[in-house]
Amino acid sequence: MLKRSTKIASAVIGLVTLVEAAAFSGTYLFHTRHYVSTDNAKVDGDAIEINAPRTGTLLSWSLTTGSTVSANEVVGRIEEIGSGGQPQRVIKAPRAGTIAATNVVPGQYVTAGTKLATAYDSVYVTARVAEEDIEGVREGSLVDITADAYPGRPLLGQVLDIQAATAGQFTIYPAAGTDPRNPQKIEQYVPVRIALLNTNGVVISPGMNVDVAIRRS
């Protein structure tokens, strides 16, 4: 026979567990009712490559990660090798953008066409939403975003566009341990492009992993 105190303790533990489970279920239902969420999302952008116009030694280089450039801005100079007078050639940014990565330093020898830096003229989030959830997403909907690199700095976005959904597909190659006579459905995802409205003062770069919660309209 269990002691009375043991029975009371067990009952209390059971009650606390039920309360916690109910609270979790309530929070989950509230969230799914008001948001379409996915962690299958990354910061993306339209890349601009800045390449070496000639083979030679990099005399100067002004770009750093996070710096901005304008179209045709001079960002460096190369002393061309192989010419009699070894003339200097300027390096220009082809379009305006924000530098995401630089690959060189002054004094470095580079060959014509070498990628010196990568910039982006627009940065956005591409979220892959499960096909069965896409009906809850609308263009113009606000989006709460959390970047893995900045867990305590919430970001705000807005849905720009939604790609057309594709029909579910089936594969004839079932996973190990499943009945080979039953084709397995492949999970389908619809890419959703999200503009960044407020980055909360942090630098958001393409390739970052993010979680998104799209507010249902």
Rank of each mutant, 00 (worst) to 15 (best):
V192N: 02
S122L: 08
G84V: 13
S217V: 08
K3E: 08
I186Y: 05
Q184C: 11
P151H: 08
Y124T: 01
I186E: 07
R181A: 14
Q88T: 14
G168K: 12
Q88P: 06
G26F: 13
P191I: 07
A101Y: 06
N209P: 03
A96S: 13
Q108I: 08
E132S: 15
E73T: 02
I50C: 03
S141E: 04
A23F: 05
V129N: 00
G136E: 01
Q108R: 12
Q188K: 15
E187M: 09
Y124S: 03
E80I: 08
I99S: 07
S67N: 07
A23E: 00
A71P: 07
A112S: 09
G85S: 13
S37V: 13
V90Q: 07
Y120T: 05
A9I: 11
V203N: 14
D44E: 13
P53Q: 10
T38D: 14
V123I: 11
V16W: 02
G26A: 05
I48V: 13
P53M: 08
P151R: 08
A117T: 05
A47N: 01
A147F: 00
R153W: 06
V105M: 10
D121M: 08
T166V: 15
I8M: 06
N103V: 07
Q88N: 08
G168T: 05
E20D: 09
Y124K: 04
V74K: 13
T178K: 09
S141K: 07
P174R: 06
A23T: 11
G26N: 12
I91Q: 05
V129H: 03
T6G: 12
G113W: 11
I8S: 06
V69H: 02
R54T: 12
